[in-house]
Design a protein around this nucleic acid. Structure first.
Ligand code: FES
Ligand code: FES
Lengths: 145, 145
DNA sequence: GTTAAATAGGACTGTACAGGTTCTATATAG
DNA sequence: CTATATAGAACCTGTACAGTCCTATTTAAC
């Protein structure tokens, strides 16, 4: 559990493919075939990613999508945020005031900490890392106290 | 997004309360009141946690639940696994053979890495940490390469 | 200017699963 | 024996995810 949604997974498929030849213009149709996704699904995702600023779109005939910036500068955290919205491990993790028992809640700061660790992990992996043959350079360590 | 389920959140509420006085026996009714949860929900969760080995149950009158081990030895990873099942960030992250395009998939190992970082983060925080006033000692760092 | 090809944006739908309830069986203290 | 507790399963329900479809709008090419 604690899964990312399928849509996010699909999005990374599309983006990693584009990352192999950035600056190139890709049509929704072509990308859908490449990723073996139904066209409507791919199209929907691409529109979303463009709206969120990860892709630049070109309308009209011979149009398509291009990565908005270099693959090194697109993190998994950004992709996830674009597709699923802001990262929030628990309901009341973000948004001060959402939870009524906010003050005096002892578990809250610790959840935030876990959330933060996750955030860093996702930020540390870029699209470029995802297409690299080697594992990405992230490591998490426990500090003694 | 990337939320833990409400149930998991509830479970930590129950467990953290028990962690403040371990070895004590708690009834489902009492815990439900404490956590301001509907009794059926709390009861269901407690049964589950007992089945998963995080709690020891005592049936009959004057029965109830006790933490199966010291709060230091119960990690958030275990709680999450108990409630939501094994951690798997993506569909094909765990279970070799689930995904057909497994071999030759470049994104897979990197997802696994992210999953692993998350796993470590969750293992690093214990139930004892959750009731402690200070933030838990976890830190994630990006390695240069 | 017309046409064809592409994205933009939204409405719509089906469905799987989390979240929650209820009921019956079983164990145990007193 | 009875009251009190958990065990376990069946069941219901709402919602959010996953997926489709339709109607603009933009632009290249002829
Ligand atoms: S802040 Fe919402 S339960 Fe702690
Ligand atoms: S292993 Fe399933 S898509 Fe890569």
């Amino acid at each position: 559990m604690l899964r990312i949604s399928k849509l996010t997974d699909y999005a990374t498929l599309l983006l990693t493919h584009m990352a192999r030849a950035p600056q190139q213009v890709y049509s929704a149709r072509g990308l859908a075939e490449q990723a073996a996704l139904p066209l409507p699904v791919a199209a929907k995702l691409l529109k979303l990613l463009a709206r969120e600023g990860l892709l630049v779109s070109q309308r009209g005939a011979a149009g398509g999508y291009v990565l908005a910036r270099a693959p090194q500068r697109i993190s998994m955290a950004q992709i996830l945020a674009a597709v699923e919205g802001p990262l929030a491990v628990t309901e009341c993790a973000l948004g001060r005031g959402v939870c009524e028992m906010e003050k005096g809640c002892a578990t809250r700061p610790h959840w935030q900490l876990i959330g933060h660790a996750l955030q860093v992990a996702l930020e540390a992996v870029s699209l470029a890392d995802m297409v690299a043959p080697k594992a990405a350079p992230v490591r998490l360590q426990r500090l003694e106290r």
